[in-house]
């Protein structure tokens, strides 16, 4: 549907996703915990391997840790 306005379509999709909830309080403890653990892991790894602390690698780490890994986990979960 190339003529469909993209942002309204995206908003519709996002409303249906559990991670993008109506109420910010409903962003679950699990999500916050995931961010906290990922952040601590990033900090501890970066403390030893400074190359992880560059802009690009920091973003890649955030992206892969917080989005891709849980997405894969959900897919693999029986």
């Amino acid at each position: 549907m190339p003529d469909e306005p993209l942002i309204p379509a995206l908003l519709e999709v996002s409303k249906g996703h559990p991670e993008v909830s109506e109420d910010p309080w409903r962003e679950t403890l699990g999500t916050l915990l995931l961010y906290a653990v990922a952040l601590l892991a990033y900090a501890l790894l970066g403390m030893y391997w400074h190359f992880l602390l560059s802009w690009t690698r920091g973003f890649l780490f955030a992206f892969f840790t917080i989005w891709l890994l849980p997405a894969l986990f959900r897919r693999w979960r029986p």
């Binding site: 995206l10 961010y35 952040l39 900090a43 501890l44 970066g46 955030a62 992206f63 917080i66």
Partner: peptide, 24 residues
């Protein structure tokens, strides 16, 4: 959408992450 949300939050994650890392 959840990947866009991660991208939006990534600068905060990155900033606080490296703050903790460099202080340690």
């Amino acid at each position: 959408p959840q990947a866009l949300l991660v991208l939006y939050r990534a600068a905060f994650f990155y900033g606080t992450g490296r703050l903790v890392a460099w202080v340690l």
